[in-house]
Write a protein that binds this DNA or RNA. Sequence first.
DNA 1: ATCATGCTTAGCCATGTCGCTAACTAATAT
DNA 2: ATATTAGTTAGCGACATGGCTAAGCATGAT
Lengths: 113, 113
Amino acid sequence: MAKHDPALSQLFHALSDPTRRAILTRLAEGPARVTELSEPTGLRLPTVMRHLSVLEEVGLIATAKDGRVRTCAIVPEALAPARTWLDEQRSLWEARLGRLEAMAMKAMKERDR
Amino acid sequence: MAKHDPALSQLFHALSDPTRRAILTRLAEGPARVTELSEPTGLRLPTVMRHLSVLEEVGLIATAKDGRVRTCAIVPEALAPARTWLDEQRSLWEARLGRLEAMAMKAMKERDR
DNA sequence: ATCATGCTTAGCCATGTCGCTAACTAATAT
DNA sequence: ATATTAGTTAGCGACATGGCTAAGCATGAT
């Protein structure tokens, strides 16, 4: 069985929450402080903090504290493993389609023989 | 705020489980019956059934029962929304990089004036 | 020195997830 | 007719998740 890939699981899990995706989308426009990120969500600060922790743990964002303000920025490379997995999946699928096509060709040749 | 996108959330959630990803990878090679899918997982049948339900609910697989055997097949188009979101995210990021670059150019011109 | 701001921590609650066993149904094989 | 096979349903338990409030703690403003 394909062995655990905890990083990928965590990555997809992080992306599975709409609030977290919204935060990432916001951050794609540029860095922001925590309060700034929390405002559009309608959620309380501690809740948003938790989402930010999740995002930071999987490496999707980086944060730094300056004085009492924490600034968050996106880490776009962190999305790569997800893309890679999806691409692999697609190429597996296409390989299979290719084999099916080959079989169909072969079947036609047999029939015409 | 970006409005809810429950389908995307469910899709990412479905992909966030290693067992489910393993099942998809297996199915990329061709259809399989339930028992066949359960064997390599080391999990009990009802557990695997639950995973299959999740996959079917989000449209990642299709199943059909013939006699007492249920056959499962992948539905590769179902991955598209995930890919699309990742691509959008990347293009947002690149647009931002573009703007930063433009700002840097402008700053250099100002400085050289 | 005091107050307001911005985050952080601790802890609670409801709900969801993932595993299991046990018992059931339906189809096929003997 | 009976036994086996393949899946299904029901329901349990442990733990994770996502929301909240309340209280704490630095930093910056007055």
